[in-house]
Design a protein around this nucleic acid. Structure first.
Lengths: 338, 338
DNA sequence: TTGAAAGCGGTACCAT
DNA sequence: ATGGTACCGCTTTCAA
């Protein structure tokens, strides 16, 4: 590095004190226009750039937010990243990525970073919170954490989420409206709240319609397309296979469709398939996938906006915001076969 | 924040100086085991956590690397993120995300951040470098930048890339080996080097096989599936349509396939399609997509490893590493129709 | 081996 | 409105 010019250099050139330079540069109203101009000029001339680290140390902020996910390479997160990034950036914050791989130690590390002031806030997209972590019990105010798309119970944390149960129910209702009665659900992992909520929605819809749900009609996958394939196979290896499948996410729906094709069944003529998430690729899948859309960019933006409100103490009680979902009907669903 | 305990508090409790505490905590060989132990204990008892910002200010490092992409929500980057993150993390670095949206101002901002020491290094996945930026002319050594998957010419920068031209040629060779002679290429944007290299590979393969390439056989898309659909339509709206399509990325290949379906053509019976990238979803697409695999995780890991070498001055000359690609043959390609 | 003290580069309080 | 200066919390000379 070159000898970076510092505030002291400007002070010397402009013939003022460092205090004045600092004030002039931060547009304080405590300096005359004349001095401000003089300082500005000196700064320009010297090619000054403020040392962010030094400032942050002094003002006790890091101007960084931590975005923590279970698995960085889950395509679902992409647009959330983007939404968060846009708002963070506009507010002068940088984005630190955290990837836990479901490892509790890593989880804890990110909470530590937050407490240590390496980040001013955190957007958490894993359901797990190390319990009793100091950061969760700030003496004053709300912990600077927003939980997105997951639900952490027994914690006073801000949330932005969708109504998974209702969205799932709507998807199944739609299949019923097409005449389907034998509808199966490929679940996400059931220890996780998301998987349970979507399963609940499915069960509710079936119960309200007075439809039986055979025991084996809710196989459990892990959100991978491979697991979708396997769950689908398990459904069609038995008598009385379904005429429609509602998968807990798009990837499993893709897996199911490819398994159906492999068995010579066509979608949607023989079997209808609905996904959940509306991944970027669902529209160009063939057949284009009917699925539940989550407004991911908006979710990211909203989460970051809430976080900013908490950080700046504009918000002091944990708020829960619910974002709207919608069923996007495409080509993977059709009338139940006779 | 609680009154965080600092090194001074430990010094008081342990009955030593702050200097000794600092040394003890950083495992300096200049302290007796006894003192080290004493200090450790005091630190534990006081629940001490080191203030990373203060240390970084002092040692003039940020322990952060900047990962700059054109578009954060491009699924292609996912596994690169992951590879970079793993290596960065293991080395004690945090990952800062940069998203340029192809805006030169934003590009420049990230270079500024690097120069300002907000990050110790940068992995650049946009082809653009603000020319003459100070960071590119360090008085000593190499700029702490690794260009991944793009090529920046006229710059002494480290690169990790693949042989786009050869990979494209291999894909087309394969189609030819299946008996295809009318092979079209859906290009990526041609101002960009990547798009040009893949087009070159295509042309070379065709030329070497002595095959004509009609003018309209290389429509230009923008890597979106929508553009793939349109390019495909343009090919089949004319007489003498191709029997095989090589798309410059998977998303355009998906678009092409869905357009072919719409026209009642089946893949691969009527038309074969090859993509490029091997996105996570290509395998579960139906038909599963034949495509060129890029070792994305390894690319991320390699780029980050190179960056660490540069940062620690283990590496002083710009190096270019080439990662291997392979053609993954799946179900979207088959023998040319008679 | 240990301690005192000088910074790292800013910001903000207290005078004037 | 401006200047002097303490301080953010740590690391690292320099002396002892």
């Amino acid at each position: 590095m070159n000898q970076r010019t510092k505030i002291k250099d400007i002070a010397r050139v402009a013939g003022v004190s460092t205090a004045t330079v600092s004030r002039a540069l931060s547009d304080s109203s405590l300096v005359t226009d004349a001095t401000r101009e003089k300082v500005r000029e000196a700064a320009n001339q010297l090619n000054y750039r403020t040392n962010v680290r030094a400032r942050n140390l002094r003002i006790q902020k890091s101007m960084a937010v931590l975005l923590v996910v279970r698995n960085m390479s889950n395509p679902f997160y992409l647009e959330i990243f983007k939404g968060v990034e846009a708002v963070a950036r506009a507010a002068g914050y940088v984005l630190l990525m955290g990837n836990t791989e479901d490892d509790p130690e890593r989880e804890a590390e990110y909470f530590d970073m937050l407490q240590d002031g390496q980040a001013d806030g955190m957007i958490l997209m894993t359901g797990a919170v190390p319990d009793g972590h100091a950061v969760l019990q700030p003496e004053s105010g709300l912990a600077p954490i927003v939980v997105a798309l997951e639900a952490v119970e027994d914690c006073d944390l801000a949330h932005v989420q969708i109504d998974n149960q209702a969205a799932a129910k709507r998807a199944v209702d739609y299949l019923q409206s097409l005449g389907h009665r034998r509808i199966a659900h490929i679940c996400g992992p059931l220890p996780e709240i998301l998987g349970r909520l979507r399963l609940d929605g499915y069960r509710t819809a079936m119960a309200e319609a007075g439809l039986e749900v055979p025991d084996h009609y809710a196989p459990v996958g892990d959100y991978s397309s491979q697991s979708g394939r396997e769950c689908c196979a398990s459904l069609f290896d038995r008598a009385d296979p379904p005429t429609a499948i509602f998968a807990a996410n798009d990837e499993m729906a893709f897996g199911a469709i490819s398994e159906l094709r492999r068995r010579g069944l066509s979608v949607p003529e023989d079997v209808s398939v609905v996904g959940f998430d509306n991944l970027f690729i669902s529209e160009s899948y063939s057949p284009a996938l009917t699925t539940v859309n989550q407004p991911r960019i908006e979710i990211g933006q909203t989460a970051m906006t809430m976080l900013l409100d908490i950080i700046s103490a504009r918000q002091s009680a944990p708020q829960t915001l619910e974002m709207p979902t919608e069923l996007v009907v495409r080509q993977s669903t059709g009338p139940a076969p006779q």
